[in-house]
Structures are given as C-alpha cells and as structure tokens.
Simulated assay, not measured.
Amino acid sequence: MASTLKVGIFIYAGADIMDFSGPVEVYSTRPPPGTPQVFSVETFAHTNPVGGGDSAALVYVPGASFAEVEQRLGTYDILVVPGAHPDVLAKFITSEEGRATLALLRRFAALPPREEARWRILQSVCSGSVILGAAGVLAGRRATTHHTCYDMLKEYADGAAGGDSGISVVKKRWVDGGETEAGVRIVNAGGVSSGIDASLWIAEMVGGEEVFRFTEKIMEFERRGEGQAWGFAPV
C-alpha cells in the first residue's frame, strides 16, 4: 500500500459504544516495528461534544466537525458508520442531521479511490447498515446487520429505492457487498463486536497478513469468519 489510509469514524448521540470503539481500536493499533502506518483515524460528528442527557454513558469530543468532513470528504479513504437501538435510528434518519448524513454517504459512495491510496471503503457496524440502506447505497447488494434488525434493514433500503431495492439481507458475521460503480467497496459488520472482525478483515485486505496478524495479537482478539453470524452455525 503506497499511502496511509485516512479513516473517518462517524459518531452520534445514542450510537452503540463498541460499534465505533472496536474499529477505532483496530485502525489505531500501531503496525509491526519498521512497517509504515497503515491507517490514520479521526472521529467526526454533527455536535461537539457528543452525548449527554439520555446518552450520558460516555461523552465524546470528536476530532472534526461534520461540516469539516463534508468539505474534505475526498481525503477520507474509509468511513465507518455505527449503529444504535432501532428507536434511535428511526429518529436520527428522519432528522435534519440524519438527512445530511445520508447525503454524505451517497457522495462518498460515488467518489473514486484516491490514486495514491487505491482503496475507498464504506463500512457499517451493527444496525449502522440501516443508515446505509436509508441512503440508498445498498440497493442490489448483499448486506447484513444486527440479528434483530434484518427486517428493518430491508424496510429502509426498499424505502430509499421507492420499491423493491433488490437488497439481499444475509445472516453473516460480516459481508463484503462489493464495489460501487466508482470503485468504493461496501462492508457491513453484523452485531456490535462484529465490527472488530470486519475491521481486522479490512486491515488484512489493505495492509497484508503481517499487519492483520500483528494487530490481532496485540488486541488478543481472534477474528471470526464471515459465516459465523450470531446464533448460527458457521457456513
């Protein structure tokens, strides 16, 4: 890989903590000694701080504002979208901030990879794929989500398409949904901790096996395979 990949991790009030902190841990782990840095991580949000009130378990100060990321969207190689409780998602998606987020995701999915990076990836974790579905970027693709949200994902993807979106919701630990016409790869992780597995798979895909194995060892986390969805035997 010729260039460090810039990772933007979106956070919002009510988002599941492990949905975004798991990928943050993977992408911010230093590579083996003497190996170039693979990822550079930055969180961003509509508000500063994020949390408080009903979302006071942890209060976060994002690294960048949503407006700043909008302005320099083409400099990001990976965007990560976490999920939340279905009630939180339904309220967020229909809000002004939610509509702006859907527009950002559509723009990102249409941006070709930077030549020096060679990769551009849109990644969701858990029910974060419902946000991608609402943005219309999962039409005609295989996708997964938290096991309680399979029907919700189909509903929102179809709603964005104005009919049958052609989405295939599968019971997987994580799913590589293929590339958009612009060459943006879409990856969905299943529920919560699956975001770590998907992020480690991406780390191997773009950084190589040595980086993946080193990160897995430092985290003391054994990556599970794509077929190991929650509550289902491996396939």
Rank of each mutant, 00 (worst) to 15 (best):
T47S: 13
E97L: 00
G191M: 11
F20Q: 11
F108T: 12
D19P: 08
V88W: 04
G34Q: 12
T148G: 06
V24C: 12
Y60C: 05
I186V: 15
R141G: 02
P23W: 01
R118I: 04
I9S: 10
H46T: 11
L138C: 03
W174D: 04
G53W: 12
T180F: 12
I93Y: 10
P31L: 02
I131A: 03
G177H: 06
W201I: 09
M205F: 06
P113Q: 05
G22K: 07
G177N: 12
H147C: 09
A2C: 14
A189M: 02
M1S: 11
G183E: 12
V88Q: 08
S165W: 03
L73N: 04
G207V: 02
L153P: 08
D54E: 15
A109C: 09
V206N: 00
G74K: 14
I167Y: 04
A57E: 13
A57T: 12
N188M: 09
T215H: 04
F20V: 13
H147V: 14
Y156H: 09
Q228K: 00
E116M: 02
S28K: 03
G98H: 14
D54Y: 11
A135T: 04
E155S: 07
E209H: 03
P234G: 00
E216S: 07
M152S: 07
A233V: 09
A117M: 08
